[in-house]
Design a protein around this nucleic acid. Structure first.
Length: 406
DNA sequence: ACTCCACAGGAAAATTGGGGTA
DNA sequence: TACCCCAATTTTCCTGTGGAGT
């Protein structure tokens, strides 16, 4: 007997591809975004006529469609202009130096494709890019997603160079489209960048539950028959997405996972219960992913935080975490990082929402951060131990921890 | 009122490592 | 081969600070 026999091949027969409910799906209709599309088209219309055009800033929280819509509008423009337009999409989280951004732009420019990813002096790349662009005589749209990362990291140098590239070379005709979720982004810029970047902006407001439903419904009905899902399940996904600052991505992910769970369950209808379970799975998947992509030492720091709290629930401090950290590095055979670095990792972990810290002064006993965990320690520990290099940490139990203190 | 702890967190130097040219 | 370019990460060095103890 085949042990797989108890699973039927596909309980819910899908009419279409479930990838329509993933983040990588690029739709060609955007409910409740007509206004933004029009505004974007309007501010880019000069490009069609080969005119100098203002740069554009796009604001909106995650899952409000800013990236999708930007890609959609620019691709339509590309359809219209064909070879005469080069579009360069750059995620500034991944590429944030003047060097890497220019290399990325160059990849799409005819005659400049073979600039190496490192080695050349910066100005050589710059000159190469300018001359190739001038020769090609094309327009350029540089989409800088998460453009705020450029300012945080190196004081706006990258942004300045890119703006200069476009603005100061007559042969280079193009615009920068900056995408950010930081509404105070413009204020953070230094003046040399500010003056080049106009205040031309498009704002993407969060979706409300009704709007999210309008997004979900057509997609769901393209893959499921009406009798295969409860409308209440869709409503719930929409409501949960709306709760999360109007996040369409979240609503869509929930919907997809709900359907997948229903299928695994051999259910023939997607009901609300699957949405609740999807929410838990999604949260846990996100946490696992965050933990897994942490640098090794950050994981050790995180583990130290958790142990430290187990020993001293209310007084886990930076110093104490450092102590645990050093011991664990010894155990694992790593050379420990400096306390300064650990301090930064603790900050990073807080940004990721995995721990909470509170600056507190203990008077005579110094000033330090009191660290708390987010209540998901067990999962976090489990995910850390999934790293094969850190398996040894499993053996660290409370009694050996107490020995650390002597 | 004054000290001084135990750090926070900024700035800059140093190290590492990708790759280039001559 | 020796040496330059740039990015990223970490170390070194540093100044700043709230409040318990005195």
């Amino acid at each position: 007997m085949n042990p797989f026999d108890k699973y039927s091949i596909q309980t819910i027969p899908l009419k279409g591809d479930i990838s329509i409910l993933t983040a990588s799906h690029e739709p060609d209709s955007f409910p409740h975004r007509e206004e933004q599309i029009e505004k974007m088209v309007n501010s880019m219309r000069g490009i069609v006529m080969g005119m100098k055009t203002n740069h554009l800033l796009v604001y909106g929280k995650t899952g409000t469609g800013k990236t999708s819509v930007t890609k959609y509008v620019t691709s339509k423009l590309h359809e219209k202009l064909g070879e005469r337009l080069i579009i360069s999409y750059i995620n500034c989280q991944a590429y944030d130096s003047p060097y890497s951004i220019m290399v990325n732009i160059a990849k799409n420019v005819p005659g400049a494709e073979n600039i190496p990813v490192s080695g050349w002096p910066l100005d050589r790349i710059y000159d190469e890019l300018v001359s190739s662009m001038t020769k090609a005589g094309t327009s350029l749209i540089v989409i800088l997603d998460e453009i705020d990362k450029l300012v945080e990291k190196n004081g706006g140098d990258s942004l300045y160079v890119i703006l200069k590239l476009i603005d100061e070379n007559p042969g280079v005709l193009g615009i920068v489209v900056g995408i950010t979720n930081d509404t105070s982004f413009y204020e953070k810029l230094d003046s040399r960048v500010k003056s080049r970047l106009s205040r031309d902006s498009v704002i993407f407001h969060p979706y409300n539950a009704d709007q999210l439903k309008d997004i979900l419904l057509p997609r769901v009905s393209s893959i499921l028959k009406p009798e295969q899902y409860e409308e209440a399940a869709i409503n719930l996904c929409a409501a949960l997405g709306a709760q999360e600052h109007g996040d369409a991505r979240k609503a869509i992910d929930l919907m997809r996972i709900s359907i997948e769970l229903a299928m695994l369950d051999s259910s023939d209808i997607v009901i609300r219960d699957y949405v609740y379970r999807a929410r838990e799975k999604l949260d846990s998947d996100i946490l696992r992913d965050t933990v897994k992509t942490l640098p090794t030492h950050a994981k050790i720091v995180l583990y130290s935080v958790i142990l430290s709290i187990q020993v001293h629930p209310n007084s886990a401090t930076t110093g104490e975490v450092g102590l645990f950290y050093n011991k664990m590095c010894n155990l694992l055979g790593y050379t420990p990082l400096t306390s300064r670095r650990i301090s930064d990792y603790i900050n990073d972990l807080e940004d990721y929402g995995m721990i909470g810290t509170m600056l507190k002064s203990l008077g005579r006993y110094g000033r330090t951060r009191i660290i708390r965990t987010s209540g998901r320690e067990d999962d976090i520990k489990r995910f850390i131990l999934e790293d094969s290099d850190l398996e040894k940490l499993r053996d660290v139990n409370l009694s050996t921890q107490l020995k650390f203190e002597q």
